[in-house]
């Protein structure tokens, strides 16, 4: 697969790299931090972690179900465990282990889905994870977090280490742009991060789709349309207070995600709005229910109009 270039020369690093850096900093101070891998430490950027902390990495081989089960056992014995593997395998093949051994049994594992969404675009559906929000949203007792830039990734990783309940972190491979010049926000799971403000429409996005949403807002601002963009990094529990405020303030709401249009961020928002009588023009942008096209992640985003132009069009269509 061709390397994905940062679309902005000020871009930082792939979130996976930030995750690894923070985990190393945490592991240096806390011997109970354990990474569990399934021949996945290279893609998880954890090779330096393994070299520095050989006692704090458990390698199970290519066996994702075993990975999550072992992680649960380690957590049950008091370890702070990060189970790291491509999101596609982790949240499909090992879903029962996540459901029973992590969530239901309340073993505080951080399940880390790497190379998520269509990061492995040209490798086909076996390597896409467009189902993980849906699958995990309907499992009780797991927080689902999708950081959109390096700041959110660092915060989310550190927070997951101190959270005494199951967490799913989802990262892609792309070099991320920073969403704000100054990150003075307080970061908390379940609290959406407002990136730009405007009352004509709201775009609620997560992960790698937040940046094109911000660019769409810029495009729209040039045309006199002012848009609030939210990085809704926590898919569950959803920031319904923020959602209610947006519905009250804006004329239309568009959601964007690197996930099936079924069962993800968009439907989570729709469900809340509908059930609370907050009826605003509303659209979900994501991957439709069809044989997913292949190519680079950017090719796939372009194909499904997950681009600044595509998102701006959808917003305009609602106003």
């Amino acid at each position: 697969m061709a390397h994905i270039e940062a679309t902005d020369p000020n871009g930082f690093k792939p979130n996976q790299e930030i995750f690894s850096e923070i985990l190393q900093a945490l592991a240096a101070k806390d011997r109970d931090i354990i990474a569990v891998t399934s021949d996945s430490r290279g893609s998880g950027k954890l090779v330096p972690f393994g070299k520095k902390f050989p006692e704090q990495i458990v390698e199970v081989g290519i066996a994702e179900q075993n990975l999550v089960g072992v992680a649960a056992g380690l957590a049950a014995a008091g370890k702070k465990v990060f189970a790291v593997s491509p999101a596609c395998f982790l949240t499909a093949r090992a879903l029962e282990q996540i459901k029973n051994d992590v969530a239901y049994s309340d073993n505080p594992v951080t399940v880390v889905g790497i190379s998520a969404g269509v990061s492995y675009g040209a490798l086909g559906s076996t390597h896409h994870s467009l189902h993980d929000f849906a699958a995990l949203r309907c499992i009780n007792n797991i927080t689902v977090v999708v950081p959109a830039d390096n700041f959110e990734t660092a915060q989310a990783t550190a927070l997951a280490a101190t959270t005494n309940s199951p967490v799913y972190l989802r990262f892609g491979k792309r070099v991320m742009n920073s969403l704000k010049e100054v990150n003075d926000d307080t970061f908390a799971f379940g609290k959406g991060r407002v990136i730009t403000e405007g009352n004509d429409a709201a775009i609620i996005a997560c992960g790698e789709t937040v940046y094109p949403a911000v660019q769409a807002a810029k495009l729209l601002a040039e045309q006199g349309i002012n848009v609030t963009v939210v990085s809704m990094h926590t898919i569950k529990p959803l920031d319904t207070d923020l959602l209610a405020k947006l519905a009250a303030a804006c004329q239309a709401i568009v959601t964007v995600e690197e996930h099936s249009v079924y069962g993800g961020l968009g439907e989570a928002c729709a469900s809340y709005l509908m059930q609370h009588g907050l009826h605003k023009p509303f659209r979900i942008v994501g991957i439709p229910d069809e044989y997913t096209v292949t190519g680079s992640q950017q090719d796939i985003f372009n194909h499904y109009h997950i681009t600044k132009e595509g998102i701006a069009e959808v917003v305009k269509g609602l106003l």
Partner: peptide, 13 residues
């Protein structure tokens, strides 16, 4: 191989 829309992707289909 591995190009946009190609069926010749990085795994057998």
């Amino acid at each position: 191989l591995c190009q946009y829309k190609s069926h010749y992707i990085g795994h057998p289909t």
